[in-house]
């Protein structure tokens, strides 16, 4: 328990549920359940606490149980004109989305979701509560374990509680489409929220006040659409943003790329990316230290070669 800043009763209860002995996995909305493989049979399933425990609009922060769904979070924040731009399925949970660590569709403007995490309380392998980060919008007190938890697929602990930074919902959000060069759009537009491209057609999300959005949209020969195209879900490839240009030539698959970001959503299975030997040894060492008995999400793997 932290000496300052009370730990919520629900976190304490969750620590008891997680316990200290048997293999355990946290179930969220099962929207990205297969990422990293499914847990070994017999692994006990637990659910993280739910609910928005505090939202302070003038602080632009929200603290919630990790089991809270994005749908609930979105709805609550929207009442005060705020959002957390996760851009994932509404039934996904906050803890689940952070554990998987995939960024949302508007990353081009809002950055990676890990940068919106201010504080995490998790239950470690020994059933104890660990707090990292801090509740304020800015903080460099101690090692940044929050960043490490994002994308760790629950291998370092069961996320119980999360404090996030919120952003104001922009005055308007509009999607446009056209058959244009996405790289040209990327170079000319000032901070669009997303540029999607299937090798042929482009979809652009522009947000801001009405006049700016209209002016930006008028730079190109666009047609307005209601939203983004449906994304293929079988694979998620990540490449350097400039390598996307070369991707245009590859035939056969249906894919949609996030231009300027480097994520490619494809209907083919994406190959695993290799991790250097040095990094792999460091990462394995971290796993051994933080989960010596391999009871956290056994079977699920971050370190596939």
């Amino acid at each position: 328990m932290s000496p300052v800043g009370e730990v919520d009763q629900r976190v304490l209860e969750f620590a008891n549920v997680v316990g200290a002995s048997d293999p355990v996995t946290v179930v969220g909305g099962r929207t990205q359940w297969a990422v990293g493989g499914t847990p070994e049979p017999g692994t006990r399933e637990v659910r993280a606490p739910i609910g928005i425990w505090s939202h302070e609009p003038e602080e632009m922060t929200v603290r919630c149980g990790a089991g809270t769904t994005l749908g609930e979070l979105t709805e609550q924040l929207a009442r005060h004109g705020q959002m957390v731009p996760f851009d994932m399925a509404p039934e996904a949970t906050v803890g689940g989305v952070l554990s998987v660590g995939h960024s949302g569709l508007r990353r081009l403007r809002y950055g990676h979701i890990r940068d919106l995490v201010l504080q995490i309380r998790h239950i470690d392998h020994s059933g104890q509560i660990v707090s990292s980060g801090g509740p304020t919008v800015k903080n460099v007190s101690g090692y940044d374990l929050c960043r490490l938890m994002v994308g760790s697929l629950g291998k370092f602990g069961c996320i119980a509680e999360v404090t996030l930074r919120c952003l104001p919902i922009p005055a308007v959000t509009r999607w446009f489409t056209g058959f244009l060069d996405p790289f040209e759009i990327f170079n000319q537009m000032y901070r669009p929220s997303a540029i999607l491209w299937d090798g042929n057609q482009v979809w652009v999300c522009i947000e801001g006040v009405v006049s700016d959005v209209a002016a930006q949209a008028s730079l190109f020969d666009f047609e307005e659409v209601t939203g983004p195209p449906s994304l293929p879900t079988a694979g998620r490839l990540t490449v350097e943003p400039k390598e996307l240009r070369g991707h245009a030539q590859k035939p056969g698959e249906r894919w949609i790329a996030e231009v300027g970001v480097g994520v490619i959503h494809t209907d083919c299975v994406a190959p695993h990316r290799t991790i250097s030997d040095v990094n792999l040894s460091l990462m394995k060492d971290l796993e051994d230290r933080l989960d010596p008995n391999n009871r956290l999400n056994p079977g699920r793997q971050v370190l596939v070669r």
């Binding site: 960024s103 490490l148 460091l282």
Partner: peptide
């Protein structure tokens, strides 16, 4: 070693962030 890379999601844990 190189921690992180120029892709949007480098594989493995975020040692860069750490």
């Amino acid at each position: 070693t190189l921690l992180g890379d120029l892709t949007p999601e480098s594989p493995g844990y975020d040692l860069r962030g750490l």
